[in-house]
């Protein structure tokens, strides 16, 4: 669907994308990054609206540098910001956008009615959009991106400004765009938690660099953790903590549990041997799935412009020492 190769975008003062190489396959792909991580810049380049400083990108097999108009007739785009004129009805607006995408008048009207129904807009569609709720506006924005039956839609922060219920509905709708309509989706968010449920694949970028790209199931597997509880809760627990840290494992203590990150299959053996070596009883050792959100960098460091040219990130999962901070990103 999308393939980029060493794609970079440099502005005079900021590097928005830094040698980004990703390959997006059919399905729902979540593009995750903090504000300013380069998500919108990437979308701009993919639509052929901004030239890349270096590298290449292809959408649906078409080169973004040369086939912009052709790409844009086959791709839908839902912007992050509000884009609806308030004195026009949803029907008028979506018909117009359908024609702007190249649909003949009759087809534009027919597909507008279909699409608005699919996103859950009924009688309201004849009223001026100025009176719509945020949820309804987001639905119209999604409808205008889908109305010309694209092969791929790029959705920029579609859940922005929605309440929890509206957010769930929108995520369900996005899932259906792929499962029911067969249209591939690239959806951006700064919230990892919501993409975890919706996406087949997750791409994490930060400071314009690729942090991670893999399928959602890999993501949660690799980032799984092991909860270890032993019979003695004080001294021995601390000894175990030291021992495991010395063995090169990443772990932290929460109450009487130790949360050990699973690096690979050997992790289980290391934990078993350490527990046996200390001579304490093993109460439990169970595998837990991380929420992807827990891996996410904390917002301060991501917003820091220094991150743009900045520290070489470990390509593997990063762990926030302060788990509260990490989870609140997803909340």
């Amino acid at each position: 669907m999308i393939a980029t190769e060493s794609l970079s975008k440099r502005y005079p003062r900021v590097t928005a994308l830094d040698r980004l190489t990703v390959d997006v396959t059919p399905g729902v792909t979540g593009l995750v990054g903090a504000n300013g991580a380069g998500k919108s810049t990437l979308i701009k380049i993919l639509l052929g609206l901004a030239p890349a400083s270096e590298g290449r990108a292809a959408v649906l097999g078409l080169d973004v540098a040369t086939a912009g108009p052709r790409i844009r007739s086959l791709v839908g785009y839902m912007p992050e910001h509000d884009c609806l004129p308030p004195d026009v009805s949803a029907t008028e607006f979506v018909v117009h956008m359908a024609r702007m995408s190249g649909l003949p008048p009759a087809a534009a009207r027919e597909r507008t009615a279909d699409t608005l129904r699919h996103v859950g807009l009924y009688e309201e569609r004849y009223r001026p959009m100025g009176g719509y709720s945020t949820g309804m506006k987001q639905r119209v924005k999604l409808a205008q991106a889908l109305v010309h039956d694209p092969k791929l839609v790029l959705l920029d922060e579609p859940t922005n400004g929605l309440d929890p219920v509206g957010r769930d509905e929108m995520l369900g709708l996005i899932r259906r765009v792929w499962t029911d309509f067969g249209i591939s989706v690239l959806v951006t968010s700064h919230l990892l938690g919501e993409l975890e449920r919706t996406s087949d694949h997750i791409v994490v970028i930060d400071g314009g660099k690729l942090l991670r790209a893999s399928s959602t199931s890999d993501f949660t597997k690799v980032t799984g953790s092991l909860a270890v509880e032993v019979t003695d809760r004080e001294d021995e627990l601390l000894d175990l903590l030291d021992l495991l840290t010395a063995a090169g494992l990443k772990l932290r203590r929460s109450g009487h549990l130790l949360q050990v990150d699973i690096a690979d299959e050997d992790t289980y053996d290391v934990v078993r041997d350490a527990v046996a070596g200390l001579g304490v009883g093993l109460v439990r050792m169970e595998q837990r799935r991380h929420r992807i959100a827990e891996l996410f960098i904390d917002p301060e460091s991501a917003d820091d412009p220094a991150g743009d040219h900045g520290p070489d990130h470990d390509p593997g999962p990063r762990h926030d020492p302060d788990q509260e901070g990490g989870s609140s990103v997803a909340a």
Partner: peptide
């Protein structure tokens, strides 16, 4: 009736310009 794919013509840039003009 579920989602229906669009198989009809995509008239492209000139038509889009004309649509913007008439609108």
């Amino acid at each position: 009736i579920g989602y229906r794919a669009y198989e009809g013509p995509r008239l492209g840039r000139g038509y889009a310009r004309l649509s913007l003009f008439s609108q």
